[in-house]
Deep mutational scan, measured.
Amino acid sequence: TFEVERIVRKKIVHGNTSYLVKWKNYSSKDNTWETEDDIRTKYGDLVDDFEK
C-alpha cells in the first residue's frame, strides 16, 4: 500500500487540479501527479495543510 509523505506542488490544467505527491519510503524521482479528488478522498488533511 502506498502512503503519501507530503504534497510537493500543485498544478491546474483546464480547470482540473492535480498535486505532485511524494510517497513515503520512495525517492523523489518516484513522485507522481494525482488528481485532487483521488488525494482528497484519503488524504484531505494533507491537501488542506498544503493549501494554507
Rank of each mutant, 00 (worst) to 15 (best):
H14A: 13
T1R: 14
D45L: 11
E51S: 01
D38Q: 10
T32E: 01
G44P: 15
D30W: 15
T17V: 14
L46P: 02
T41Y: 11
T32R: 03
E36W: 07
T1G: 14
V8Q: 04
V13D: 08
G44H: 09
R40S: 04
T1N: 13
V21W: 01
W23A: 00
I7F: 02
K52V: 08
R9E: 10
R40P: 02
D49C: 09
T41E: 13
G15Q: 04
I39Q: 00
V8K: 03
N16H: 12
W23S: 00
Y26G: 11
D37S: 12
T41H: 11
V4L: 10
E5W: 04
D49G: 07
K24T: 06
E36K: 04
T32C: 03
G15N: 06
E3I: 11
W23I: 01
E51A: 04
K24G: 04
I7G: 00
Y43D: 04
R9A: 15
W23F: 04
S18D: 01
K10V: 07
W23E: 00
F2A: 14
D45C: 08
D30I: 09
N16Y: 11
S28P: 09
I12F: 08
K24W: 06
L20Y: 08
N25M: 07
Y19Q: 00
F2G: 13
T41W: 11
F2N: 12
L20K: 02
F2C: 15
T1C: 15
K11F: 05
V8M: 09
G44A: 14
Y19N: 00
I12M: 08
Y43M: 04
E5I: 06
E36L: 08
D38Y: 15
T35W: 12
D30S: 14
K42F: 12
D30K: 13
K42E: 08
K10R: 08
S27E: 10
W33F: 02
D45V: 11
K52Y: 07
D37F: 12
T35S: 13
S27H: 09
L46C: 04
E34V: 15
W23T: 01
Y19I: 03
V4H: 01
V13N: 08
D38M: 13
D45K: 13
V21T: 02
N25R: 06
K52E: 08
E5F: 04
R6T: 08
D38G: 06
V21H: 01
E51W: 04
E3D: 08
Y19V: 01
G15S: 04
S28G: 09
R9W: 09
N31K: 05
E3M: 08
E36M: 07
S28H: 14
S27F: 06
K29L: 12
H14C: 15
K11D: 04
N31I: 08
L46K: 07
G44Q: 13
W23Q: 00
Y26F: 14
E51I: 05
Y19M: 02
V21F: 01
Y19T: 01
Y19K: 00
K22R: 05
G44M: 10
V4W: 02
R9V: 06
D49Q: 13
G44C: 07
F2S: 11
Y43C: 05
V8F: 04
D37A: 14
S28F: 11
K42H: 09
T35F: 09
G44W: 12
Y26T: 14
F2D: 11
K10Q: 04
D49V: 10
D38I: 11
I7W: 01
E34H: 10
H14L: 11
V13I: 11
I7Y: 00
N16W: 09
K11P: 00
K22A: 06
T17G: 03
E3Y: 07
V8D: 02
T17E: 03
K24R: 11
N25S: 09
F50K: 03
T1S: 13
T17S: 05
D37G: 09
V13T: 10
E3H: 06
N25W: 09
T17H: 04
T1V: 14
E3G: 07
G15E: 03
H14M: 12
E3P: 04
E36H: 05
K42A: 12
D37Y: 13
Y19S: 00
Y26L: 15
T32I: 02
S27R: 06
S18C: 15
W33C: 05
I7A: 01
V8R: 02
K42G: 06
K22N: 02
E34D: 00
V21D: 00
S18E: 10
V13Q: 09
R6C: 15
L46A: 06
S28M: 12
V4G: 03
V8H: 02
Y26C: 15
K52N: 10
V4Q: 03
T35A: 12
E36N: 03
V47M: 07
S28L: 07
E34G: 02
Y43H: 07
K29G: 08
R9N: 12
D30N: 14
F50M: 03
Y26K: 15
N25Y: 10
K52T: 09
Y26H: 15
T41Q: 13
V4F: 05
K10F: 06
E34P: 01
E34Y: 10
S27L: 10
K22M: 06
L20G: 01
Y19H: 00
V13A: 08
T17M: 05
W33E: 01
S27A: 09
N25P: 05
G15C: 06
R40A: 06
Y19C: 02
E3F: 06
I7M: 01
R6S: 12
T32W: 01
V47L: 14
D49H: 10
N25H: 11
Y43R: 05
E5R: 02
F2V: 10
S28A: 11
D30E: 13
F50D: 01
V8I: 14
K29I: 09
Y43T: 03
N25L: 06
D37Q: 13
E5L: 07
T17N: 05
V47N: 01
V4C: 07
K24V: 08
S28R: 06
V8P: 04
S18H: 15
Y26A: 13
N25T: 08
K22D: 01
N16A: 12
Y19W: 03
K22Q: 10
K22P: 00
K24H: 06
I7N: 00
I39M: 15
I7V: 06
V8A: 02
S28C: 15
D38F: 15
T35V: 08
T35K: 12
N31M: 15
D48F: 08
T17P: 05
D30H: 15
D38N: 12
T17R: 05
F50V: 02
Y26S: 13
I12Y: 07
T32A: 02
F50W: 10
E34R: 06
W33G: 00
F50G: 01
W33I: 00
V21M: 02
T17W: 06
D37R: 11
E51L: 06
Y43F: 11
T32G: 02
S27D: 14
I12V: 13
F50P: 02
N31P: 07
R6I: 09
G15D: 04
K52C: 08
T41K: 14
I39W: 00
I7Q: 00
D38P: 03
E36F: 07
D37T: 11
R6L: 10
N31W: 13
K52M: 12
W33R: 00
D48R: 12
T32M: 02
I39V: 10
Y19D: 00
V13E: 12
T35D: 12
E5D: 07
G15W: 03
D49I: 12
V13L: 10
R6V: 10
D49W: 10
N16I: 15
Y43Q: 03
D45R: 11
R6Y: 15
Y26N: 10
